[in-house]
Design a protein around this nucleic acid. Structure first.
Lengths: 335, 335
DNA sequence: TTGTACGCGTTATCAT
DNA sequence: ATGATAACGCGTACAA
């Protein structure tokens, strides 16, 4: 089996350069192209990516950076869904995917990513307002696409959703139900999604003439904080709770039930994400669907497009969200 | 900043070859080594892996192959836990990790893995009795470590558990409780774990003088089949069920409760894996703990060891399992 | 259109 | 112990 361009060249009776042109789409006569392709067909030749990298600086390998603590990766299917979407695109259009998780410090991870030299570009999940890893990638010459973004990333390529607007919509939904004591369990403060959803909640409350700070309890996107925060909100006598994500909402639901209260009669409950857990809860959870899988797809597509034509400037994609209304807010309809 | 060996050589006043020796542990005078290391310290030099690969055939990059359908990856934390363990080791001792999921056919995935040429070796989760991807990797010259193995893989490097013995132990535990109509919901037939756990169940039943085929219902490791299979077993009048994994057991528990029966009084229930879901069920699930995270760690260690000293022959690791007894089989003690 | 020849950054061999 | 120098496999000016 032919292993190198030289082998193919010899078999085809042309020079190595010509074979390379056939493979990479250079200008070759139709006749020659046909003959060379025929030879390639009969072999299982695969270009050596290391050599290609050395010669052209490109490998077709893309990096995916999800710098989260392993337990988070473990519990929150958000990241797995993201990875799923990314890999769907890369499997077809890239020659491989390197994965960088949160095993080491951000500085060290950055150092290793930049030092590898095998990746054409990276997709990085940018959760935090302050993130040296993201800063470092953006400052480097490695093409980078962010999943999520900060105000300071406006010149970068990113895929994101309108967290503020979406949170406003959820909160407004609760208010429109006639609830006036609407609480919010925040996401992790310091994260873009956590802060922005809080902003959206405040905006909706203020517009409705409701007090925007009274019923805010800090959470961190995890189920346990949902339980604890819900306890505090119940003491304050809320009649609705908007949780920063579905995991938090599942914890809140547990606490509300434990207090002997009914969802949605006593307390309407809404989440954010629409991960599988949302529809499995009882009652099923009203939530803001963000297509996580779609975010993965779009970010990978954006990066590949960026690599193909860098002159197009940064790619910026804002994906739509969708309010999915279930029985946790309008259960009165069916029961 | 120095980007190449030549830069370092110039800064140190030695030849490129000497710098390379310092980095890779060749024989260099103490004096020279010190001077060169000093120069390296002051720069952020990272060797170009592509060039290294071309020259030596090694990059320090390791592949992780988990050829499962994305939904499975999504729902079953087994794979995430495995990845977690693997990445813990690779983050410290490798220069990167390529991830290969089940987006394409096994044949195509194999082709791409072998064609990449950037990986020193791969870790592959080998679930199936018949697996062209695993066969292809073992037949290739790419160093490979299996997670799980088949009888035909006895000459390969692998990390596994004793599925037969572990299933025997769980089943025997149920029998020792005095249960005589012990059912089994199998894992996916065609998978090694599914088949071997069934074998272990049969062995325990036979040894106890019980009919080994009467109460066997096929499942596929997922929660829905647990529900359906439990319904069949309840019709047969079982007084205990051993499920091939925890996800199946959670489905079975739901069905048993729906039938108005008590666990463990009417039906004792046991699972396999001890993933987080097991202790979250009500009642908490008796299950066979297999250290999935540990399997990830061990498989990565085995591969790195294999790469360092191939002459040591195949690495074979059989990890212990542990029966974790909870209220789903001995609830009588506390209630 | 095609071939020649050089360079990418590293390791390894061979002198010295 | 150290320094030239030849690979490694590919892409691509440049020449023909």
């Amino acid at each position: 089996m032919a292993r190198t361009l030289d082998d193919l060249a010899e078999l085809s009776g042309v020079s190595r350069a010509t074979v390379s042109r056939v493979i990479n789409g250079g200008s070759v006569s139709e006749e020659t192209r046909r003959r060379v392709l025929e030879v390639i067909e009969g072999t299982n030749y695969r270009p050596n990516l290391a050599a290609r990298s050395l010669a052209s600086g490109r490998t077709g390998v893309v990096g995916v950076v999800m710098h989260v603590a392993p337990p988070v990766l473990f519990e929150d299917s958000y990241f797995v869904a993201l990875l799923h979407g990314v890999s769907d695109v890369l499997a077809d259009r890239a020659s491989g995917m390197m994965l960088w998780l949160g095993n080491r410090s951000k500085e060290e991870t950055l150092d290793r990513i930049l030092g590898t030299g095998l990746m054409d570009g990276v997709i990085v999940s940018a959760d935090n307002l302050d993130d040296p890893l993201v800063d470092g990638l953006l400052a480097s010459d490695l093409p980078t696409v962010l999943i999520g973004h900060r105000r300071s990333d406006l010149t970068a390529s990113y895929v994101d959703i309108d967290n503020i607007g979406a949170a406003d919509t959820v909160t407004t939904h609760l208010i429109d139900l006639g609830r006036t004591r609407v609480g919010h369990i925040t996401g992790r403060l310091g994260s873009v999604a956590g802060e922005d959803r809080l902003t959206g909640y405040r905006r909706a409350m203020q517009r409705a003439g409701l007090e925007p700070e009274l019923f805010v309890v800090e959470g961190d996107f995890t189920r346990p904080t949902g339980v604890a925060a819900a306890a505090k909100l119940l003491e304050l006598g809320v009649d609705a709770i908007f949780c920063a994500n579905d995991a938090t909402a599942s914890g809140a639901l547990e606490r509300i039930n434990a207090a002997g209260l009914d969802v949605p009669k006593d307390v309407a409950l809404a989440g954010f994400d629409d991960l599988p857990v949302a529809s499995e809860l009882s009652p099923p959870l009203t939530t803001m669907r963000q297509g996580v899988h779609a975010q993965g797809i779009e970010s990978a597509s954006a990066l590949l497009s960026l690599l193909e034509s860098p002159e197009g400037g940064p790619r910026r994609v804002l994906l739509p969200t969708e309010l999915v209304i279930r029985q946790s807010t309008v259960g009165g309809l069916s029961g």
